[in-house]
């Protein structure tokens, strides 16, 4: 069943129950996001906290990736409250991302750059110091280079690895130490990774990249 909703004054149609984020993206309305995945309809991770929007009738901004569309919904993707919240979340992510666009393989094709451009945000955090984690770059796999200091923990590579039939990488530890890694933290080259490159395609930033030939 189709429903009609209004996003930023524009009327769009979407299938009832679709998450608002996908309804917006399918209609050419950009909402920043890193962790969302279409196939995770049951329980979206909702971890990056960048897709906040304001919906009429809701007391506070909500994440678009977790909100099923309903008839007559009126959405504002960039109210002042939303903008402040997204800016804060983005600054937090950037305070934990090794910023090296010039040498980064994702330069020009990076979701962080896209968000910064779309929302007129600085890539370099203004108020917050950079939190270093001192994690070494792993270039042990045949084709793939993994730089955990650039990882934004969106989990897309983990899904891609599993969809490919492998399960080499996963989340481990918790809190600030949370990391995408292999079982026992062994280098990718020793983990059974077949260098299929699916994780590289999935990575929205430059954390997983192909080796330069």
């Amino acid at each position: 069943m189709e429903v009609t909703i209004t996003i930023d004054g524009k009327q769009i149609k979407a299938r009832k129950g679709t998450m608002l984020l996908w309804a917006a993206l399918d209609n050419g309305i950009y909402i920043p996001h890193l962790c969302a995945a279409r196939e995770e309809t049951e329980s979206p991770p909702a971890s990056c906290r960048l897709c906040f929007v304001e919906v009429e009738g809701y007391p506070a901004p909500v994440t678009a990736c977790t909100l099923p569309v309903a008839e007559g919904m009126v959405v504002n993707t960039s109210s002042e409250r939303v903008n402040r919240l997204v800016a804060a979340g983005f600054e937090l992510i950037m305070s934990n991302h090794r910023l090296d666009c010039k040498n980064c393989p994702a330069n020009g094709n990076c979701e962080l750059q896209r968000i910064a451009k779309a929302r007129k945000l600085r890539l370099k955090p203004k108020n917050l110091p950079v939190l270093h984690r001192d994690l070494p770059v792993d270039d042990s796999a045949e084709n793939i280079v993994y730089d955990p200091s650039k990882c934004v923990l969106c989990g897309r590579c983990i899904r891609a690895c599993r969809n490919h039939g492998q399960s080499v990488v996963g989340f481990a530890r918790r809190g600030f130490e949370r990391v995408v890694t292999t079982c026992g933290d062994v280098p990718l080259g020793e983990s059974g990774c077949d260098s299929c490159g699916e994780c590289v395609k999935a990575c929205p930033v430059g954390a997983m990249s192909l080796k330069k030939k």
Partner: peptide, 12 residues
Amino acid sequence: IPAVDVYGVLTF
């Protein structure tokens, strides 16, 4: 389940 998931639980 993948071994890395056991590791994920263990380290959590």
